[in-house]
């Protein structure tokens, strides 16, 4: 790990790589995730960024403009990882032939739709092949770009436009896929889960480790969406903190097979503290739905214990 002394002031003073002019919403987590990850690049290093079709893509590289100071490639929805692996192969070829002196890093961004679902095969393949790249999932738990449809990352009972709450429906009937664990099961050098906490130390250090680890790395960043989750844009950081303090989204990393829990709340908050901040879970607080809240709490508790066991065993 490359845990240099972290200073938000220093990180924030680095030249911006993702700049103004993009069309992302106020209060959007994706943009915050991108800036935080890109800040972890050493200023002297270059990057080629690959982005899956997503809000991020259609809003940040809109012909003839771009918000990316580094080279940028978009090809399609389901192949950001495969596209990046082609760029990385070209880099290796140019390096071998002595045609390129500069150091480049390869970073792919996808939403949960482009990562957990339609791009899952491409991601799995690129990681298994040992591509020297970082794949960053900005997980906002639904297909937000097309209008808030459920994904395999959408948590149970969330109200989305394809798991709509109604007299015969409590919202999404299935639980959320645990992609970070699946990526750890690829036995790649580095896998981590993070979000926006405090001074961004957790995300910054994980991004830095992911970028400067040789070989494939995967970073899963919970990145709330104000439209899909239905919260006031000013509440972004509070919601992320509650996701961590309720153990809905634990902060952990897996380095060469070693599982490390990066943060354990002093007092684990009930999951309702997190759910009540978001309109997508509003129906869970209606009379008669107490059993649904219990199920959510049970699921969070079970997964939290599983994770702690994995970390204790390491």
């Amino acid at each position: 790990m490359i845990y240099n002394a972290y200073s938000l002031k220093e990180a924030a003073s680095r030249p911006e790589r993702f700049v103004q002019g993009h069309r992302m919403c106020a209060g959007c987590g994706a943009t915050v995730a991108v800036r935080a990850v890109m800040r972890a690049l050493r200023p002297e290093d270059r990057a080629v960024v690959t982005v899956a079709t997503s809000c991020l893509e259609v809003s940040s590289c809109n012909y003839p403009y771009t918000s990316w100071n580094d080279s940028f490639l978009h090809t399609a929805f389901e192949n950001a990882a495969a596209s990046a692996s082609g760029v990385e192969a070209a880099y290796t070829a140019l390096k071998k032939k002595g045609r390129l002196e500069e150091t480049y890093k390869f970073i792919a961004f996808g939403g949960d739709g482009g990562t957990y679902d339609i791009g899952f095969q491409s991601l799995s393949g690129a990681m298994e092949r040992g591509t020297d790249m970082v794949y960053v999932c900005y997980d906002n738990e639904a297909y937000m770009n097309t209008g808030i449809q459920r994904s395999s990352s959408t948590p149970a009972y969330a109200d989305t436009t394809t798991s709509a709450v109604g007299s015969k429906s409590d919202g999404k009937p299935q639980y959320k896929k645990d992609l970070t664990k699946i990526m750890a099961a690829h036995h790649i050098p580095y896998v981590a889960q993070s979000t926006f906490i405090g001074n961004f130390k957790d995300l910054h250090q994980k991004a830095e480790t992911a970028i400067y680890t040789e070989g494939p790395a995967f970073l899963n960043v919970l990145a709330p969406c104000p439209r899909g989750w239905r919260y006031s844009t000013a509440d972004l950081m509070d919601i992320c903190k509650l996701a961590v303090d309720t153990c809905v989204w634990p902060l952990f990393e897996v380095t060469d097979g070693e599982w490390v829990l990066n943060y354990e709340p002093k007092k684990k908050l009930p999951v309702t503290e997190y759910l009540k901040t978001q309109g997508r879970f509003k129906h869970l607080f209606e009379n008669g739905n107490e059993h649904l809240l219990e199920r959510v709490q049970d699921d969070v508790d079970r997964r939290w214990e599983e994770l702690k066991n994995l970390c204790d065993m390491s």
């Binding site: 080629v48 690959t50 490639l73 090809t75 399609a76 389901e78 192949n79 495969a82 596209s83 990046a84 692996s85 082609g86 760029v87 990385e88 192969a89 070209a90 880099y91 290796t92 070829a93 140019l94 071998k96 032939k97 095969q121 491409s122 799995s124 393949g125 690129a126 298994e128 092949r129």
Partner: peptide, 28 residues
């Protein structure tokens, strides 16, 4: 040959990787 051979997991990824490599500046 000293070609980088990317043994992808599907033809979709084959063409995606070719696009990445070609856009990066090499023959793919």
């Amino acid at each position: 040959i000293d070609t980088e051979f990317v043994a992808v997991e599907s033809e979709h990824s084959a063409m995606s990787a070719c696009i990445g490599a070609s856009a990066a500046g090499v023959r793919a």
